[in-house]
């Protein structure tokens, strides 16, 4: 290990330490009523679409029996390998 690395790392950490707020409390009062993003649960006991043909469509992921109709979101991704698609 080069000595200069250790010195550099140590000085980086001591600088970070010196600049950190030493209060030890990070605005906890603000967070009291916040429980974060409420992501919906994925398990439940409902039934799905009934007798439709959703489960018997013949797409099989093997690339021979289906054509993917790609209809992307509204932002434009350009350049790279997509350039020719305009």
């Amino acid at each position: 290990m080069k000595k200069s690395t250790s010195v550099l790392v140590a000085s980086a950490i001591t600088t970070a330490l010196a600049m950190a707020p030493m209060t030890g409390v990070h605005a906890d009062t603000e967070k009291e009523k916040c429980y974060g993003v409420a992501k919906a649960g994925k398990n439940d006991c409902k039934a799905g679409p009934g007798t439709s043909c959703a489960g018997s469509s013949t797409v099989d992921g093997q690339g021979n029996a289906w054509m993917l109709v790609l209809k992307g979101s509204c932002e434009k991704i350009v350049g790279g390998s997509l350039a020719e698609k305009g």
Partner: peptide, 28 residues
């Protein structure tokens, strides 16, 4: 969730599916 916490509605009880709370931590 947030409506229930904010408004504390007069309702007898709530039911959950435990599988939705089988994460190790976090918001749920």
């Amino acid at each position: 969730y947030q409506t229930i916490i904010d408004e504390q509605p007069d309702i007898g009880w709530f039911e959950i599916h435990p599988e939705n709370y089988m994460g190790q931590g976090g918001a749920p």
